[in-house]
Write a protein that binds this DNA or RNA. Structure first.
Lengths: 189, 189, 189, 189
DNA sequence: ACGTAAGCGAGACGGTACGTCGCGTCTTACC
DNA sequence: GGTAAGACGCGACGTACCGTCTCGCTTACGT
């Protein structure tokens, strides 16, 4: 499923997928992803139910395929490790992206959201942090995987706060703060 | 619902609730809380379906009522703020409790678990951390609620790592490490 | 399925089954049994779709259960072998019964009907004829099962003609004719 | 539909139809005509779904067009009315034809077959019998159409018995027996 | 022999029915 | 009053076939 994402030029397919995706996003914002049904989606998208299943296994498959696309572009960002006070560029792009799609993210991460989504975002920051794994090795007595889990969940926690609080701080500011907090953890004995 | 939790002495009621709870726990361990159905529960508990609904609204209500009881006793722990190298006693008790019920926690926190459960645990550590809120106020330029969300998610992350890794470290060790990491965050800026 | 037909005293069950059966009959008459859907039936019966499946596997199960009841009473008729010019009493009862439910039978036996139904009726007359099997043994060089199949299909053919022609002859007349024709076959060398 | 059967010489068309027909026959034998789907047919025939519908309305149209061809040649047989002990030549040809295609006929006439097919065969023998209609008129008090329906169904019944029993008697024998039984009916009254 | 119209493959799509599952409510009878 | 037994309405699920519809390719035919 979610097959042939690349190089499928059939306009009907592209149109159908676009409408399904947009319907899903609209509905998730309206009433929370967890209470969106396939019926809701196809009705709003004006697409036949069977057609939905020709493209996606279920609503999770649909949203995941959306994320695949989103995060493919995010991953194109540079990977340079920032200096002490500078924000991580990847993290900043993530914050900017979330700010631009705030209603959707609120819908997906809230209590009526989809935990797989949250996990995915967390793993994204985890991947970013893993770049400094080697620096961590041997520098502390704590198990690096634990610190990684600690920090990635921590960043996710900051992100959630930011989203729910109304995003009154700039992505840059957020990235800078997270950077500082992360550094502090790295400097623990 | 979940009513009359206090002082309800009818033995039939107590027995019914006990059996429902135990069935729920067994099943959650077996196949993950999210795929447990009310039917599963009442069948294993040998209780009639309607009887379930007389006591609980749904399986979430059942598990929450269980948590209510669990965390009432956990909250009875002392609240003293520990010194630099000492583990937080509340956190330690939590880790010990989780170690003692590891299969259940793994079932509730894993990918087939229940996100409300995770949230609840996180809020528990958040409550513990909030004790140092005032100490935080003014000491950093970061918004305290953000740091709180950051740290509580972080602790949760460490906990999840610990659970899934096999709990090869002692609760005391975990609490000590978390304490160190938390302190580091407080000293930022 | 079609379970517990006997001694099930729950009024709701009886009512549900009655409404489903009547809806099925009405619809079969209206548009032919083969084009009746379960949806049609439950809609007309004002019964929920799932409820239908709690009672019957499918529309065939429903109609067969109906026939079971009908033919239980028909089988209560006497089995005496009639004299040369007298009609077979069982056959007569069958013709009378069909005359009384002509629209339904036309619906079931017509081109948009249900072949299992026709088969059932044919086997009914076959059972009646089998009573004379022993008399047949040795009296002719033809294989008795062939003659049985021949005669039961033949009777069915006469019945179908009668139904479609408008039943302008009395059941007694039909039974008498069939009796004569059957006797003739028995007297073939 | 089933159009242009005559004088359509395009090889592609002929090839497509041949493959569709053969696939249908193979599948009907394998699992009974009623459970063959258009998808099954086109898959086995290695023909596109749309192409099927360019030639036939549905699987019934396909099988009927096959029968049209089969029975066109059968109808070319002589129509002489046989003497008392002689078999009807047309009936014999029919029995021979069926014997040569027994698996297919069993598939079409069995419980998972196609009732329209059975009807067609029955009407074929009916047509044969109608040749003696005039001879019947006035010779008996029974309505000739009834006798016709009686006899054609009867012959069909004998045929079915023969097919399912394993065709251990020769077509000639069958035709002779049927002839005798038919004569007996004509002599009633 | 070759250009062209027809046949065809590939497969998306809308539609309708299917049978299943889980939910939460209800009635009746028992103890 | 708590419980068992279980019928019921509701609504979502995912599947199976159906018949229609582009859109290009290719192939047999007719000049």
């Amino acid at each position: 499923m979610s097959q042939n994402r690349s190089e499928n030029q059939d306009l009907r397919i592209l149109r159908t997928r676009k409408m399904l995706r947009e319907a899903m996003i609209t509905l998730a914002i309206q009433k929370g992803f967890s209470s969106v049904t396939v019926n809701d989606i196809v009705e709003l998208a004006m697409v036949n139910r069977a057609t939905f299943y020709r493209h996606y296994q279920d609503k999770y498959d649909l949203v995941e395929s959306y994320l695949d696309e989103l995060y493919t572009e995010l991953n194109a960002a540079p990977v340079s490790i920032p200096g002490p006070g500078e924000p991580n560029p990847r993290l900043m792009k993530l914050f900017e992206h979330i700010r631009d799609n705030a209603p959707f993210y609120r819908a997906m991460l809230g209590p009526r959201g989809y935990s797989g989504f949250a996990d995915r975002i967390r793993r994204l920051t985890e991947a970013t942090l893993r770049a400094r794994w080697e620096a961590l090795e041997g520098r502390t007595r704590m198990p690096p995987p634990m610190v990684l889990s600690y920090l990635s969940h921590a960043s996710y926690g900051a992100l959630v706060w930011w989203l729910e609080e109304g995003m009154s701080h700039s992505p840059e500011q957020m990235a800078r703060w997270l950077h500082q907090l992360t550094l502090a953890a790295f400097q623990v004995d």
